[in-house]
Simulated scan of single mutants.
Amino acid sequence: MAGTSDAGHLLKTYECRGDLAAQSPMSHVAQVTTPTLILHGEDGDRCPVGQAEQWFAALRERNVPVRLVRYPGGSHLFLLNGRPSHRMDYNERIVQWLEQWIPVAGTPVSPS
């Protein structure tokens, strides 16, 4: 983030001191097994879409169930101030993802 985000240099200087590589999620991706849904505004300056793509690719390479959805024209806060169709889609995808991956009592989860 320190090298790609519009505010990453500030975080690096004032908040994330020490070993930045060790603080990166990419440094720990081999330990991730949780099914992961990534919903990302394409035009975000805080978290550029390349970060989402990198995380998606790393999880996919490790056979972690993962889905990446990109919202064209969406900023970092597209969930709050983006297109109504994007906000609605975001909410629907979360519900569908949770229904897919959280078992109903007594029912095993099966990836679909």
Rank of each mutant, 00 (worst) to 15 (best):
T4W: 09
S5K: 02
S5D: 02
D6G: 13
A7F: 14
A7N: 13
A7C: 01
G8Q: 05
H9C: 01
L10A: 12
T13V: 00
E15M: 15
C16Q: 10
R17Y: 06
D19T: 04
L20N: 03
A21C: 01
A21S: 10
A22V: 09
A22Q: 14
Q23I: 04
S24K: 10
S24C: 10
S24I: 07
M26R: 08
S27A: 15
T33M: 09
T34R: 08
P35Q: 04
I38Y: 08
L39I: 04
H40C: 03
H40I: 09
G41D: 12
G41K: 12
E42V: 08
D43M: 11
D45I: 03
R46T: 09
R46W: 08
C47I: 12
C47E: 10
G50K: 05
G50L: 04
Q51K: 02
Q51H: 12
Q51A: 02
A52D: 12
A52C: 03
A57F: 07
A58E: 15
A58F: 11
L59T: 04
L59V: 04
L59E: 08
R60N: 13
R60Y: 05
R62Q: 07
V64L: 10
V64R: 03
P65M: 06
P65A: 14
V66H: 11
L68E: 14
V69D: 12
V69E: 15
R70D: 02
R70C: 04
P72K: 01
G74H: 03
S75G: 15
H76W: 15
H76E: 13
L79I: 13
L79H: 14
L79S: 12
N81T: 11
N81L: 09
G82R: 11
R83L: 13
S85H: 10
S85M: 07
S85L: 07
H86V: 05
H86W: 14
M88P: 01
D89L: 07
Y90E: 08
Y90D: 10
N91G: 12
N91R: 12
R93D: 05
R93G: 04
I94R: 06
Q96F: 06
Q96P: 00
W97Y: 06
E99C: 06
Q100L: 12
W101C: 03
I102F: 13
A105I: 09
A105G: 00
P108G: 01
S110R: 15
S110N: 05
S112I: 09
